[in-house]
């Protein structure tokens, strides 16, 4: 059994928060560079500014976006590793240090409905745990801004729904997200599972690499169709028109009840900030 100190987790999470806030993932950066080549006029100028923004953020340590988000983590724990200490506490301590020492914006309010008082350290993080074989821990961390998160939706379809119904739901949701969710988007779609599982799948889908394909050919073909359809909307960079409205669209599916067909759409802005580390 491998033993890992909780403090190590804290240090890693802190670094991950700071790194994610200032550096776009390589695949996202590449997708924006490609978009810049495919656009003309204003859309091209805007994507050029997006690339400038990424350069300034990385070189001069300004966060890519002032909304450094809710901190969302997917933590996969091997069955041959033991964390000495409280893992959840260690993660939140890392978030607190990352946001404080990294000059990131603290956006979390403790009471959502009445007092809405800021917790001052961006905790608590939203953490999803899962378990696997081996002696490693894999941590994926997303900084999820509210502009795009607020446009995310979940619908419980009846199994009688057609493929067209599902596609229309995705397209309508993306059109509704419009300029305020900062296109071009990365779109995570969960299909199946139950109510909460479906939403989680749509979030997890945002971690996939641009260009990666769902292993099931039916779902992959749906991913391709939807990407084409979404780009046909001409929402474009910042919603001001253009050929590219989404950098990528990823579906994650799961078994579901015979009477259900949940579909969740989690929208990410162009600044799709996430990072993965394996310990």
């Amino acid at each position: 059994m491998r033993v890992i100190e909780a403090k190590t987790i804290t240090d890693i999470v802190k670094q991950m928060c700071i790194k994610a806030a200032h550096n776009l993932p390589a695949d996202i950066l590449l997708a924006i560079k490609k978009t810049q080549k495919q656009e003309k006029g204003l859309a091209k100028q805007i994507t050029t500014l997006m690339l400038d923004n990424a350069k300034i953020a990385k070189k001069e340590l300004y966060p890519l976006c002032q909304d450094t988000g809710t901190t969302v983590l997917f933590v996969e724990i091997g069955n041959e590793i033991f964390v000495k200490g409280n893992l959840t506490k260690a993660i939140n301590e890392g978030v607190k240090k990352g946001y404080t020492e990294g000059y990131l914006r603290k956006s979390i309010v403790k009471d959502p409905l009445f007092k809405r008082k800021n917790t001052q350290d961006n905790t608590p993080a939203v953490i999803h745990y899962s378990f696997k074989n081996g002696n490693k821990i894999k941590i994926s961390l997303l900084l999820k801004g509210a502009g795009s998160e607020n446009k995310s939706v979940l619908k419980m379809f009846a199994p009688s729904a057609t493929l067209k119904d599902i596609k229309d739901f995705v397209l309508d949701s993306v059109k509704n997200a419009g300029a305020s969710a900062c296109p071009p988007f990365v779109i995570g779609i969960g299909i199946g599972g139950n109510f909460e599982n479906c939403a989680e799948l749509s979030k997890k889908a945002l971690l996939r690499k641009i260009g990666s394909a769902n292993k099931n050919k039916d779902y992959n073909s749906l991913e391709k169709d939807l990407l084409k359809e979404i780009n046909k909307t001409k929402i474009g960079p910042q919603g001001l028109g253009g050929n590219i409205s989404a950098l990528g669209i990823f579906i994650e599916e799961a078994p579901c009840h015979t009477a259900s067909l949940p579909v969740a759409i989690n929208i990410s802005c162009h600044s799709s900030r996430h990072i993965t580390e394996v310990l």
């Binding site: 997006m50 923004n53 001069e60 300004y62 890519l64 976006c65 002032q66 603290k106 802005c269």
Partner: peptide, 27 residues
């Protein structure tokens, strides 16, 4: 409209910044 998600670029346009009201509201 300003371009969303370009906070670093806009920060470079700021020459001076001070809080003038509701300091307790943080950001």
């Amino acid at each position: 409209i300003a371009f969303g998600g370009l906070g670093a670029l806009y920060a470079k346009c700021v020459k001076k910044s001070e809080v003038v009201l509701f300091k307790e509201l943080g950001c």
